[in-house]
């Protein structure tokens, strides 16, 4: 394995560079996944049947809390990668733990939100609108949940093995995934919640 010290650790081997590019291509496919969900959402948003419409269902406070939590977590994991690049393992792990806690807070708010919707009579089967709403939000939420476990395992591995070209590469790829989920949330926040409430 040839290590190029002029590059950041996560880019230092050919395998690492290919892993990162491969993950970007995966994110390209993820963009398409969410594009199909948004396409369906825009098609079905007015088919509310006897159920509630978005304007009746959505509440600004939990949505803002979720947005703030996810935006901040995306910033914090960016600091984590920066700390990794200057070789500060302790700071990196601290930032990664904070990131996951913020992500956990996000999931907490989202679950509470889903329970509220359920109590207000909006379930997956209520109308075409609630079906696509829960499917879109749920797909994003499932990604975040997966990210929590992935991130936890990354933290444990870095703790155990230290910062090596492999662990740095995995951490960087995880940070790409986490930032990507924040981008998807920005679009959900804007085109589902804000558009639905105005």
């Amino acid at each position: 394995m040839e290590i190029d010290h002029s590059q950041p650790l996560e880019y230092s081997t050919e395998q690492n560079r290919l892993n990162i590019l491969g993950f970007w291509i995966f994110l390209g496919a993820e963009i398409m996944l969410f594009a199909t969900l948004f396409a369906s959402y825009f098609t079905l948003v007015d088919r509310t049947g006897n159920g509630p419409a978005g304007a009746e269902l959505f509440e600004i406070t939990p949505v803002l809390a979720e947005t703030f939590l996810l935006l901040t977590s995306s910033f914090v994991i960016g600091l984590g990668i920066h700390a990794m690049r200057i070789g500060n393992k302790k700071a990196m792990l601290t930032f990664f733990v904070i990131t996951l806690l913020l992500g956990l807070g996000f999931i907490g708010f989202e679950i509470t939100e889903f329970i509220t919707y359920y109590r207000e009579g909006a379930t997956l089967q209520t109308s075409a609108f609630t079906s696509i709403l829960f499917t879109t939000l749920g797909t994003h939420g499932a990604h975040v949940t997966l990210g929590l476990f992935w991130g936890l395992f990354i933290i444990l591995q870095v703790k155990k093995r230290g910062l090596t070209p492999e662990t740095a590469n995995k951490s960087f790829i995880f940070s790409l995934y986490w930032h990507f989920l924040d981008i998807v949330w920005i679009f959900i926040f804007t085109f589902i919640y804000m558009k639905g409430m105005t």
């Binding site: 590019l21 970007w24 291509i25 994110l27 390209g28 496919a29 963009i31 398409m32 969410f34 594009a35 199909t36 948004f38 396409a39 825009f42």
Partner: peptide, 14 residues
């Protein structure tokens, strides 16, 4: 290039 391709397809789809 990957991103432009994905965004192009996403916009066409939506």
């Amino acid at each position: 290039m990957t991103l432009y391709c994905a965004i192009f397809l996403a916009l066409i789809t939506v």
